[in-house]
């Protein structure tokens, strides 16, 4: 009975239909510049949703709004059932976030980081102790438990950082280029963790510049100049653009972009 929930998501989650992220004409304007222009989409429970776009297409802006860090200029969005405009604090409690740039405290040990972030997310000491051990065992970090995070290889940091981001079993986890610069073997181990999280019911919202990773998502959206230009499963997109790889899909869409970066 434990057949892959993952790949059947394309079909079953839409049918079961629990929407975890809903954006409706979500817009963010800075002066004359429309960073995110009326974006509308839904993400389902347990889905792995790839959020792609060229540098400067508006991904970070959109993601900040969804995380409750930036208030939209117009339009609405709900994340985990909470309104991004009126309930940003509730959203922050119900999501996990991990970026390539800042993830953990380098001057704290592995165990201290787990304790610190678990505490912030309100886990009780008792619960935290059990979770912490479970996590360290799962990642095979027993021998590195007392080591400063700064001394770990990047791949380890990223895996640990992801596990900490989902320590409180959030409804959604936002991953901003989690695998940049990571070696190809660790990159795949990282995706195993993503699959496991999705299997446990956590919705995964991920940005990446690796087009092979785009293939691992259930559905993908591609942003160009602030708008969502395409949204479908990887195979649906390849069919629509009549090409054999996601690289080509991305290229066809993003080369039309008029703006680039930030």
């Amino acid at each position: 009975m434990h057949r892959s929930k993952i790949v059947s998501l394309n079909y079953s989650s839409k049918m079961s239909g629990e929407i975890v992220i809903q954006a409706n004409q979500l817009t963010k304007q800075f002066g004359d510049f429309i960073a995110a222009n009326s974006i509308t989409f839904e993400v389902y429970k347990g889905e792995i949703f790839g959020f792609l776009g060229a540098n400067g297409a508006g991904k970070t802006t959109a993601m900040r709004m969804l995380c409750g860090l930036s208030s939209p200029s117009s339009g609405q969005a709900t994340v985990a059932g909470f309104d991004v405009r009126t309930q940003p604090e509730e959203i922050k409690k119900n999501i996990g976030y991990m970026s390539q740039k800042f993830s953990l405290y380098e001057d704290l040990t592995v165990a201290e980081n787990i304790q610190f972030f678990g505490g912030i997310y309100g886990l009780s000491n008792k619960h935290l102790k059990a979770k912490s051990e479970e996590l360290i065992n799962q990642l095979g970090l027993q021998s590195a438990k007392g080591q400063l995070v700064g001394s770990l290889p990047l791949g380890w940091k990223q895996k640990l950082s992801f596990s900490i981001a989902i320590l409180h079993q959030p409804k959604v986890v936002f991953l901003d280029e989690p695998t940049g610069g990571v070696d190809p073997v660790t990159r795949r181990q990282f995706w195993d963790l993503i699959y496991q999280a999705a299997e446990s019911g956590i919705t995964v919202f991920v940005t990446t510049h690796y087009m092979d990773e785009a293939e691992y998502c259930n559905r993908i959206s591609i942003m160009v100049d602030g708008r969502i230009e395409a949204l479908d499963s990887p195979s649906g997109l390849k069919k629509r653009f009549n090409v054999s790889s996601m690289d080509e899909v991305f290229y066809q869409l993003a080369r039309k972009a008029k703006r680039s970066d930030n």
Binding site: G180, M211, R255
Partner: peptide, 13 residues
């Protein structure tokens, strides 16, 4: 040194 890290596939090309 890593001129294309974090750069999207179109700009990398």
């Amino acid at each position: 040194d890593e001129p294309t890290t974090g750069v999207d596939p179109v700009s990398r090309k």
